[in-house]
Simulated scan of single mutants.
Amino acid sequence: MANIETLKIQFIEHYGGHASDIEVFHAPGRVNLIGEHTDYNGGYVFPAALTFGTTLLIRGRRDRSLGLASTNFQLSKLHDMDSVSYDPADEWMNYPKGIVHELLGQGIAFSQGYDLLFHGEIPNGAGLSSSASIEVVTAYALLSMEGLPLDKTKIALLSQKSENEFNGVKCGIMDQFAVAHGLRDHALLLMCDTLKVEMVPFQTGSYQLIIANTNKRRGLADSKYNERRAECERAVEELRAAHPDLELLGELSAGQFHSIHHLIQDETVRRRAQHVVEENERVLQSVEALTAGDLERFGELMNASHQSLRDLYEVTGQELDALVDAARQLPGVAGSRMTGAGFGGCTVSLVHEDNVALFMEEVGRRYTEATGLKADFYVCSIGNGVERLEP
């Protein structure tokens, strides 16, 4: 986690004043262990909060301005606290601006303006929920400063709405929910349709989670993410010939789907739906495997998930496939898969502790040979959701 005293110095250098009235909040990034592209289809996901994420320093102002600055980007600006609108030129600032816009839309009258300084440890565009981390920590901090209730589920839903409507990205609820509700050493079995959640102890013994970043940037809004959502919606429409009340693909079991999949006319749309339904069942099988301490089975399900994302949903690409292929050829690797929306971003692998150094060296070497890019590796721990750090 970031050095808070150093961040306070940077805050004062940018905004002036004294450090005594600065408050500090943190929201994690998240990794989805399995269950990809199921969230917006009303299915199960199995994410966990990471110990690194976004640290936010905030202090009240004497006027009605909203100061936004980041240690990661040069762009900073003062906005009108009572009237914010989307502006492509504002780049990263549209995420906290979207939260202010949603809070104003809920009738919240801010008592003052605020200065905010963000420090992000999540690689941008890596698929580890940097945007959700910014959104959730902004909402949590502003509500805290105003002395308003801190309902983490409502904060997650508000953050999702901001990303959907203000920033134009049709993400599901998983990212914001995991960032808000994360619990140290636990993964979240979340049913995205009902928001029913079960905290599952994530105990992997002598195995460790390693995230590998392709360092190929990908943006959700300009990727094929929205196209995949539209294909799933089309599949639901055609399957209603057999199930008139069907709303989301996550409502179907694999058996039900395979008995009616012929109703989907387009083969590509059929493959998309098949991935969603089968991935949903893999999530439940993964929880069973972890609960039983069967890491070999959990790894097999990770591998099957990536294969489905590659062949049926077609969201992996050369870089993610190169990382996964290299990982699976090494000893001590129980499983490896892409995590996040795809089209670049990261993989997550379960690696025996005795093989971690070899894994990072050899996967990195093979990845560079295959793509010309350099991968970054993170040995991860599972941490808490959004929280106040100081005072």
Score class of each variant (00 low, 15 high):
Met1Trp: 00
Met1Arg: 05
Thr6Ala: 13
Ile9Thr: 14
Glu13Lys: 14
Gly17Arg: 10
His18Gly: 14
Ala27Met: 01
Gly29Asp: 05
Val31Ala: 04
Asn32Ser: 10
Glu36Thr: 01
Thr38Glu: 02
Ala48Thr: 11
Ala49Phe: 07
Thr54Ile: 15
Ile58Ala: 15
Ile58Gly: 03
Arg59Tyr: 07
Arg59Thr: 08
Gly60Lys: 12
Asp63Glu: 06
Ser65Pro: 02
Leu66Pro: 04
Ser70Cys: 01
Asn72Tyr: 08
Leu75Val: 06
Leu75Ile: 06
Met81Cys: 00
Asp82Ala: 04
Asp82Trp: 00
Asp87Ala: 13
Trp92Leu: 05
Lys97Trp: 05
His101Trp: 11
Glu102Gly: 00
Gly113Arg: 00
Tyr114Thr: 00
Asp115Asn: 13
Glu121Ala: 11
Ala132Ile: 03
Ala132Lys: 05
Ser133Gln: 05
Ile134Gly: 03
Glu135Lys: 01
Thr138Gln: 03
Tyr140Gly: 05
Met145Ser: 10
Pro149Phe: 09
Leu158Glu: 01
Lys161Thr: 14
Lys161Ala: 11
Asn164Met: 07
Cys171Gln: 05
Gly172Phe: 00
Ile173Asp: 08
Asp175Cys: 09
Ala178Thr: 06
Val179Asn: 03
His186Asp: 04
His186Trp: 03
Cys192Trp: 05
Val197Ser: 14
Val197Tyr: 08
Met199Arg: 13
Val200Met: 10
Ser206His: 15
Ala212Ile: 01
Thr214Asp: 12
Lys216Arg: 14
Ala221Met: 11
Tyr225Ile: 01
Asn226Met: 03
Glu231Thr: 06
Leu239Gly: 09
Ala241Ile: 06
Leu246Phe: 11
Leu246Asp: 05
Leu252Thr: 06
Ala254Glu: 13
Gln256Cys: 03
Phe257Asp: 03
His258Arg: 11
Ile260Cys: 10
Ile264Gln: 05
Ile264Val: 15
Arg271Val: 04
Gln274Ile: 01
Asn280His: 12
Ser286Trp: 12
Gly293Ala: 13
Leu295Asp: 01
Glu296Met: 10
Arg310Thr: 08
Arg310Gly: 00
Ala326Tyr: 04
Gln329Met: 15
Leu330Trp: 13
Gly332Ser: 14
Val333Ala: 08
Gly344Cys: 11
Gly344Trp: 10
Ser349Trp: 01
His352Ala: 12
Asn355Trp: 12
Phe359His: 07
Met360Asp: 04
Glu361Cys: 02
Arg365Gln: 13
Gly372Tyr: 14
Leu373Pro: 05
Cys380His: 13
Ile382Ser: 01
Gly385Ala: 12
Arg388Pro: 01
Glu390Asp: 13
Pro391Thr: 10
